[in-house]
Design a protein around this nucleic acid. Sequence first.
DNA 1: CCTACCGATCGGTAGG
DNA 2: CCTACCGATCGGTAGG
Lengths: 198, 198
Amino acid sequence: MDQELTNTKEILIEAAYMLFAEQGYHGTSMRHIAKRANLALGGIYNHFDNKEEIFKEVVLTYHPFVVALPQFTAVEGSSAAEFLRNVAHLIIQEIEKRPEILNIVFIEMVELKGQHLNELAEQILPKAEGFAPRLLALTDQLRSVSPVMILRSFAGLIFSYFVTGKMLANTPLANDTTTLDEFIDLYLHGVLKESTAP
Amino acid sequence: MDQELTNTKEILIEAAYMLFAEQGYHGTSMRHIAKRANLALGGIYNHFDNKEEIFKEVVLTYHPFVVALPQFTAVEGSSAAEFLRNVAHLIIQEIEKRPEILNIVFIEMVELKGQHLNELAEQILPKAEGFAPRLLALTDQLRSVSPVMILRSFAGLIFSYFVTGKMLANTPLANDTTTLDEFIDLYLHGVLKESTAP
DNA sequence: CCTACCGATCGGTAGG
DNA sequence: CCTACCGATCGGTAGG
């Protein structure tokens, strides 16, 4: 691999990432990307066949699952509660480093119709295999047994804290001060005061 | 109001709604919208000043909060659990009637940078005043007191069931069969088997 | 409400 | 890696 060439490609991906996140896929032109990367329009095509290729590379590079997964192996916790708490904090930490990352996820869903989700899942699931057993080991402390359900409800937890928080910022409810830990408590123990589950 | 004119405007909004949801804001042209509404391009401008006006009207017409809110007054439930259960089912029912509606929400967030959230909130919050007391009346059965937090975590519940469900459809995890009621149970009682909350 | 048009910009390519 | 170009399409308007 030519060092110079690889570097330019990385600069292009970073430039495209920022612009896609700010203006969406169709709202970002190849000329915008070229300019942000200090390149002439034609220069892009030395590194990518077309616009969709760039977006695909952005998704596979910056998707939160890809970025956060390696860190999961380091998460500790003696109980299920502590473990889930730490994972939630880790993910939010990662998202707050690059808040635009969630925009990419939504753009992929809507404008690109989820085209890359399959490839993304195939890339991630094998790596997640080291993680699943640790979750299963805590299964006797958890109400639900399905790891997929844990994953999905966890996504809801992140959404309820981070995304709705951003949405509220533009509304009269902007002074809401609910913290991440309060949402985690709700996630762990439910909204009902007394557990009356079967 | 001229009946013919009002009707054409409604047809335009419906056409724009579908196209925006399918291809995003910048991916949809005024010509596409005109064609779908059986109108010449210039005819659009008898009803809307520009493209952004159309999108704004789409959001204010079809946003799930606008559509679902009137129905909330009819929701029954003798306990907090039953009440929340019924609300969740109502919302999912509404979304399944028009699944594209969530795309509009995400497009507004990303491509339009949440411009209309404030106007939306101002339109909705007064109408929600009849709803808040009913929630507060159940407050002694709930762990958290803040209605805003209930609202936000509820959005997470919808996300964890509906949106992640759609995302999973494109992946190897497509055979997951978790039902809405299972997510609601998790929401009501938490992921932990035993409630060990303070 | 339509036709015909405006300048600007789009994704992509040829050729060097 | 850049310059100069391609045809197509964009949002919007004038004029009727």
